[in-house]
Nucleic acid binder design. Structure first.
Length: 206
DNA sequence: AACCATTACAACCGCACAACT
DNA sequence: GAGTTGTGCGGTTGTAATGGT
């Protein structure tokens, strides 16, 4: 479908950003694949969408994560696992990509969670997609953190993978109602029903 | 000052699903 | 119903920035 080198890759320039912002201002979000045709921008629609969502969108908060945000993310991760979009949906101004990166670079280290115990080198995990099959099989260290009732919840991966979160959220609507406009306060659930104590997690945190 | 290692973040890739034709 | 397109998600990779020697 797509020509091999038709689209540019790598970091976005300020000029490209302004083109994309102008397009969204005029046409609104969506139909990302039309952007290169309409604007002449040498970026695929997928890249445009990502750039907008993660960087250009006015609602995106930038800069350091606060302690409150860290705490929130840890709690939500205990509850939801790697459902980054769901977690990000509960952290105002943060995108799933930001949350995911922050978790992988900061929080997982601080919590002593080792992603892939066999692949010890920092970068070179085996790139096999098989990780999709067992990515919810938390490390032992993480299991220690998982002192919630979430084991009683169906694993999102039990329903397949990829966008299974949609399916999952439907099945859990009666439980958490995660994506409704007036959602149940997940933290309340955590505090009252799951008794997640993060004191042990936070000792040593800055 | 120069080099190397590490960190933090931006971006890409592949997959899956829903909507549309 | 089958095929195509658009979108969203999570994992992974690339690279700029920073720190240490």
């Amino acid at each position: 479908m797509e020509e091999k080198s038709e689209y540019k890759k790598g970091l976005w320039s300020a000029e490209e950003d302004s083109i994309l912002m102008e397009y969204v201002r005029k046409h609104g979000k969506g139909k990302w694949n039309r952007i290169p045709k309409v604007t002449g921008l040498k970026r695929c629609g997928k890249s445009c969408r990502l750039r907008w969502i993660n960087y250009l969108s006015p609602g995106v908060k930038r800069g350091r994560f606060s302690d409150q945000e860290n705490d929130l993310i840890i709690r939500l991760h205990n509850l939801l696992g790697n459902r980054w979009s769901l977690i990000a949906g509960r952290v105002p101004g943060r995108t799933d990509n930001q949350v995911k990166n922050h978790w992988n670079t900061h929080l997982s280290k601080k919590l002593g969670i080792i992603k892939n115990p066999t692949a010890h080198s920092s970068q070179s995990q085996t790139p096999s997609k098989s990780s999709r099959d067992d990515d919810n099989s938390h490390s032992q260290a993480q299991d220690q953190v998982m002192m919630t009732n979430t084991d009683a919840l169906p694993s999102p991966r039990d329903y397949g993978n990829g966008s299974s979160s949609r399916f999952w959220q439907c099945h859990n609507n009666d439980h958490f109602n995660l994506h409704t406009p007036t959602p149940v306060n997940v933290l309340d659930l955590l505090d009252h029903d799951h008794h997640v104590s993060l004191d042990f997690v936070w000792h040593g945190f800055a």
